[in-house]
């Protein structure tokens, strides 16, 4: 009977099986989720969701990268090596620093130091925005040197991969800015702290993804 009957319902002591899992505790100092315990926005669900989301992103980037691998192996005639603009190195540094700032902020919040959290998170947010602006500058510089989307396959893949990464960064920045908005008004309750942790995790993921892409551009392509 393992498939059809709930194990607890077989018990003869008459205790009904727990129909619903423990309602997620979203409240307590938080204004948004207090009276809605069954929204499913529990903390661990959010973590699972973001990790699964990262798997989807990894699949998209794997598809693009494998297309690049295949494409490079086809013929070498129109695969011109791309000279990366130096601003990309600055961008990389800023992205790493923003990751560090966001993680420092996250740890500070855990110790209840909200004021310092606000400083560090603001720094991380600004650096993340700076990274995005830096990417736009990098695309401009590449275009000025004649590396456009069409004509050169290497630059075509560079643009597609960096655009895809930037699109993810924009999505992550929405989350980061939302936390910033809540944090500056000191309204980060427990549910808001889930936002902090989840967006920080996704931000680190984008950081690692960018390092991986840079490694590919520098050492392989």
């Amino acid at each position: 009977m393992a498939t059809l009957t709930h194990p607890d319902s077989l018990k003869s002591d008459g205790a009904p099986p727990p129909f619903f899992p423990e309602p997620p505790t979203g409240g307590g100092g938080d204004d948004s989720d207090r009276n809605r315990p069954e929204r499913g926005n529990s903390r661990s669900a959010a973590f699972i969701g973001i990790v699964v989301m990262m798997c989807a992103s990894v699949m998209t980037f794997s598809a693009l990268l494998s297309a690049m691998v295949v494409r490079r192996g086809l013929n070498g005639t129109d695969w011109h090596h791309l000279t990366l603009p130096s601003i990309l190195w600055w961008n990389t540094g800023i992205l790493i620093l923003s990751s560090v700032a966001i993680d420092v902020a996250r740890r500070l919040l855990r110790r209840g130091r909200r004021q310092e959290f606000n400083y560090w998170w603001t720094a991380g947010t600004l650096m993340g925005t700076w990274f995005l602006i830096g990417q736009i500058v990098a695309w401009k510089q590449l275009a000025e040197h004649g590396f456009t989307l069409i004509g050169n396959q290497h630059s075509a893949f560079f643009y597609v991969l960096t655009w895809a990464h930037a699109a993810h960064v924009v999505g992550a920045l929405v989350g980061v800015f939302y936390v910033e908005y809540r944090a500056l008004r000191f309204r980060l309750g427990p549910a808001g702290r889930t936002w902090v942790d989840v967006s920080a995790l996704f931000w680190h993921f984008l950081d690692v993804l960018w390092l991986f892409l840079m490694a590919i551009f520098v050492f392989w392509a």
């Binding site: 598809a63 069409i150 075509a156």
Partner: peptide
Amino acid sequence: LLSFPVLLAAGILILLDRLAGTGFFLPSGG
């Protein structure tokens, strides 16, 4: 989860071929 993102990536590439003139899937573009 494992398959639809791949189609999305392929769709982005082919839309660039169609709309921006790249040559990811076109022999004429290499």
